[in-house]
Simulated scan of single mutants.
Amino acid sequence: MEWVGDARLAAGPEATWYLEAAFTPGAHLGTVYDDPTTPVVVTGVEELTTIRVPSGRLVVDAPWHDDEVWRYQKGLPARPPRELAVSVPPGVYRVEIAWTAGPYEFFGEHVDGVECAATRLCIGDAPVVGWEMGLAVDEDTDRLQAGDAPRFFSDGNVGCFADAGAWTSLSAPFRTFVDGIPAPRDTEQLADGCERVRDESQQADLVTFGAESGGVVWLGRTEAGDVATIVVTSGMRGAKA
């Protein structure tokens, strides 16, 4: 049976166009701010790493929030992460980043304007026939208002994919403080400042990526309704449903 999504979660024409163009090298995603003659161009799609998700439950959130220090100082437990309501088959998946370039000048100096357009978790190879917003386990479709785009927020402009079953241990390096100051993290450094944390006892991982102010999570569905990919669009770009 062909998949029919919930219209309240479905991506509109603008978001659909962006989600498909962001991972198409050479595509134009608009123009540089204050310079309509210079396009923002998708320069390539990079495989950042792979991630193990043995529980099939996925967190897509910031690995830490500024209020974690306050909660730590008060002896309060960390707040729960934004776990997606949808699950995926337990497995190992590719994490890919779409890069754009929109060069500009800043106080007379040339800036290449390289940015992350979107980050995706590749679940399957079947074609995507539709996109919908990915709700968290505690979010209710019936409470959505017109124009709402549920998202996670990030004080540090960093997001992550992580196995929800191992979240406590995987996120611990980001929530460790000494006298109220974040402690140096013993994490694996990936390209472009991204990090990976491994929990070998549970065979699970956490991978960070750039996410300006957080991001909207989109599910790419196949004709059968399976999730083929999970995409995070950062900042305001591509956030409109």
Rank of each mutant, 00 (worst) to 15 (best):
V32I: 13
V32R: 14
V32N: 02
V32Y: 08
V32A: 13
Y33R: 15
D34P: 01
D34V: 01
D34E: 14
D34I: 01
D34F: 04
D34W: 06
D35E: 15
P36H: 13
T37R: 15
T37Y: 12
T38S: 06
T38W: 00
P39V: 10
P39M: 00
P39C: 09
P39S: 11
P39F: 10
P39Y: 05
V40F: 05
V40N: 07
V40D: 14
V41I: 15
V42F: 06
T43L: 10
T43F: 00
T43P: 05
T43Y: 04
T43W: 05
T43S: 12
G44Q: 14
G44Y: 09
G44I: 11
G44W: 14
V45S: 04
V45K: 09
V45N: 06
V45A: 06
E46G: 04
E46T: 00
E46P: 02
E46A: 01
E47F: 02
E47G: 06
E47V: 14
L48C: 05
T49D: 15
T50N: 06
I51G: 06
I51Q: 01
I51D: 01
R52T: 03
R52M: 00
R52A: 12
R52G: 04
V53H: 00
V53G: 06
P54A: 02
P54S: 07
S55T: 15
S55D: 12
S55A: 09
G56P: 00
L58Q: 06
L58D: 03
L58C: 04
V59P: 01
V59Q: 03
V59S: 05
V60L: 05
V60F: 07
V60I: 14
V60C: 12
D61Q: 11
D61Y: 13
D61R: 13
D61W: 13
A62D: 08
P63Y: 11
P63H: 09
P63L: 07
P63I: 07
P63M: 08
W64D: 06
W64F: 11
W64M: 04
H65Q: 10
H65W: 08
D66T: 05
D66I: 02
D66W: 09
D67E: 14
D67R: 10
E68K: 03
E68L: 03
E68N: 09
V69N: 01
V69K: 11
W70I: 07
R71N: 03
R71H: 00
R71Y: 04
R71A: 07
Y72D: 13
Y72C: 06
Q73N: 11
Q73S: 10
Q73M: 11
K74H: 14
K74S: 07
G75Q: 10
G75Y: 07
L76F: 10
L76G: 00
L76M: 11
P77S: 06
P77C: 03
P77V: 04
P77R: 11
P77D: 13
P77L: 01
P77E: 10
